[in-house]
Design a protein around this nucleic acid. Structure first.
Ligand SMILES: [Zn+2]
Ligand SMILES: [Zn+2]
Ligand SMILES: [Zn+2]
Ligand SMILES: [Zn+2]
Lengths: 159, 159
DNA sequence: TCTTATCTGATAGTTTTTTTCATTTAGTTT
DNA sequence: AAACTAAATGAAAAAAACTATCAGATAAGA
């Protein structure tokens, strides 16, 4: 934890940004909730518990900054809010997401399944890939029994 | 074109919805701009040219309806607006997108590259896939010469 | 034609995010 | 250490995108 905070501190100062108390509190919340896909509001409320004087604008600014530096990732699951998640250490690429159209739960695929596909895309489409987003929408293992016809769920809350 | 409008008319009436003049005008705009990834506002302005009396709320309602019926797809490219695109006829799945971090252009990959991966995911993660979204972020063929270090673009406007 | 349910436009309201700006904080220079 | 400077912050206003409300229009059915 301390190691990671320190690492971010260095990333910030490498770009002439300081790790202010507000930024540090925000970073700690993000690290502590690594698997959580928090919205800005979520982060704000969690940070407030530790640093009650922080303002929402600062949280937005910090999230934007950390995103610019690729310390965190912005995500969009189609529910009208941007979500943020801490980037796995040294991860070249982002992991993938499984979104259940029935219960809304978001599960993670931690392995990168796209490597062979990306090689093809880079060549065939002359496109230099820097990052990707891959989301599967469907029915999670917990909802399998409940949902009669998964195809009926097409169009449900998908962006 | 007429064939497709008619097809949609049938899809609507199969669910007890009418193809009103406003809906038809909207559908025609969507078909005419199949490759365009229009926002609701974009659609509104284009529809207004043909049917100036239409209201923005009706456009939103129509887009939501067409999305529920899977006639169109909702997309999110991370710029804060939902975008819509006509669904290819009989397409089981959605095509993929190449988003240039330099010029912002969005290109299409019309083939479905995910079929083998989905088989794996369905089995290994016990997840029944209904749909997916795959986006690659990077440098397009037109910007190749201009961009010195593509990696530097990480964090630029990606959701 | 009368009835009823659907649909629409205008407008007000919500929600999320961004901007503004006066103040605070933290380095730097003298 | 005092003065200067730039960066960062919080509160509040504003913007942007979308959603809900509601009275009136439209259209299908009895
Ligand atoms: Zn589920
Ligand atoms: Zn995740
Ligand atoms: Zn480009
Ligand atoms: Zn497309």
């Amino acid at each position: 934890m301390e190691k990671r905070v320190n690492q971010i501190k260095q990333q910030l100062s490498a770009h002439n940004y300081k790790l202010t108390p507000q930024r540090e509190a925000t970073v700690r919340v993000l690290i502590e909730n690594e698997e959580a896909h928090l919205s800005a509001e979520d982060v704000y409320l969690l940070v407030k518990e530790k640093a009650p004087e922080i303002g929402l604008a600062t949280v937005y600014r910090t999230l934007e900054l950390l995103s610019d530096l690729s310390v965190i990732h912005k995500l969009n699951f189609g529910d009208g809010v941007t979500r943020y998640e801490f980037r796995a250490e040294g991860a070249e690429h982002h992991h993938h997401h499984l979104i259940c159209l029935n219960c809304g739960e978001v599960d993670e695929i931690m392995e990168d399944l796209l490597t062979p596909i990306e090689a093809r895309v880079e060549e065939e489409y002359e496109f230099q890939i820097v990052d990707h987003r891959l989301t599967f929408h469907g029915v999670c293992r917990r909802c399998k029994e409940v949902v009669a016809d998964p195809k009926k769920l097409v169009g449900a809350r998908v962006t």
